[in-house]
Design a protein around this nucleic acid. Structure first.
Length: 272
DNA sequence: AATGTTCGCAACCGCTTCCGG
DNA sequence: GCCGGAAGCGGTTGCGAACAT
């Protein structure tokens, strides 16, 4: 789809950004001028101190908005354009492993942002899985597997309803492997994975991680707001090599049924 | 051509976690 | 250990373009 310039998206509203900052904080789509101001400010002072950055940059935006704009749009290393087949494949694998931990998934896809991956998942991949009779949340066969496609609004609503209490019901079919449940209700970041996750690794071709507890408690992960900090045992290299193995590990590929259709997409052998 | 619907994505919101005092 | 501010995350919404009728 031909996308309009971002600055033309969303109505540019001015106003209520909450008590205390209601004055004249601008909201809505960013203008090229604002982008320029923000880019210059970050180039000059670096990322961080988002709270005070907009004032120093001469922007009538809240720091949160500035940070989001920079992270999701202005950063020079952002890769734009369609998600490639191998990227999609990796997203599927990582989501199966990690669940909706978009920032963590994005961390394995250079140039892609968590927001982009989240959007892509919600608008493409989840529907693709549903169409194949797979529950996109658990990566297990849907009960009845009566794939029905509705608008993404309906999908979002259904997903929201399904996870409203943040304690999704156990799937009727015991999953061979399922993403770890959130450690905390509604916890978005830093949700610990813990023992269940470690257990899940067993039989997954990564038994070496068994006994590490949470295999992904690497400092860099924590630094990115990743998993819990209870067990910083596995270092960055180990964590990275494990995730890298997702793309190469034959056993994992077997597990996921890494057989491609003629169109390059995975067929449903195994799971996809 | 007009109208309605679907889609894609940027941005906002509320919450959690981190961190320094 | 406690508290408050800052940063980061995932869920959700709003809006215009594309598509269908």
């Amino acid at each position: 789809m031909t996308r309009k310039p971002a600055a033309q998206q969303r109505g540019v509203g001015v106003g209520s950004a909450g008590a205390g900052v209601m004055r004249t904080l601008k909201r809505g789509a960013w203008t090229p001028e604002e982008d320029e101001l923000l880019s210059r400010a970050v180039a000059k002072e670096g990322e961080g101190r988002w709270r005070t950055l907009p004032r120093r940059a001469g922007l009538l935006r809240c720091g949160k908005s500035c940070r989001l704009r920079w992270m999701n749009y202005l950063r020079p290393d952002i890769k734009r354009g369609p998600i490639a087949a191998d990227e999609e494949d990796l997203i599927l694998r990582l989501h199966r492993l990690l669940g909706n931990r978009w920032s963590l998934i994005a961390g394995r896809l250079p140039g892609r942002t968590d927001n982009e991956i989240k959007n892509y998942w919600n608008s493409h991949l989840s529907k693709k899985l549903i169409a194949r009779g797979i529950d996109p949340r658990t990566h297990t066969p849907l009960p009845g597997a009566a794939a029905s496609l509705h608008s993404h609004r309906a999908d979002a609503a259904a997903a929201a309803a399904g996870s409203a209490d943040k304690t999704p019901p156990l799937p009727e079919i015991e999953p061979r492997f399922a993403p770890p449940p959130p450690a905390h209700p509604s916890s978005s970041s830093g949700a610990g994975v813990g023992g269940d996750f470690a257990t899940s690794m067993v039989g997954f071709g990564v038994e070496g991680f068994e006994g590490f507890g949470d295999p992904f408690c690497a400092p860099d992960v924590a630094a990115r707001g990743g998993f819990g900090l209870d067990c910083p045992i596995v270092d960055d290299a180990t964590f990275s090599s494990f995730l890298d193995s997702l793309m190469n590990e034959e056993r994992i590929a077997d597990y996921f049924g890494d057989h491609k259709d003629a169109d390059g997409e995975n067929d449903q052998g195994g799971a996809y």
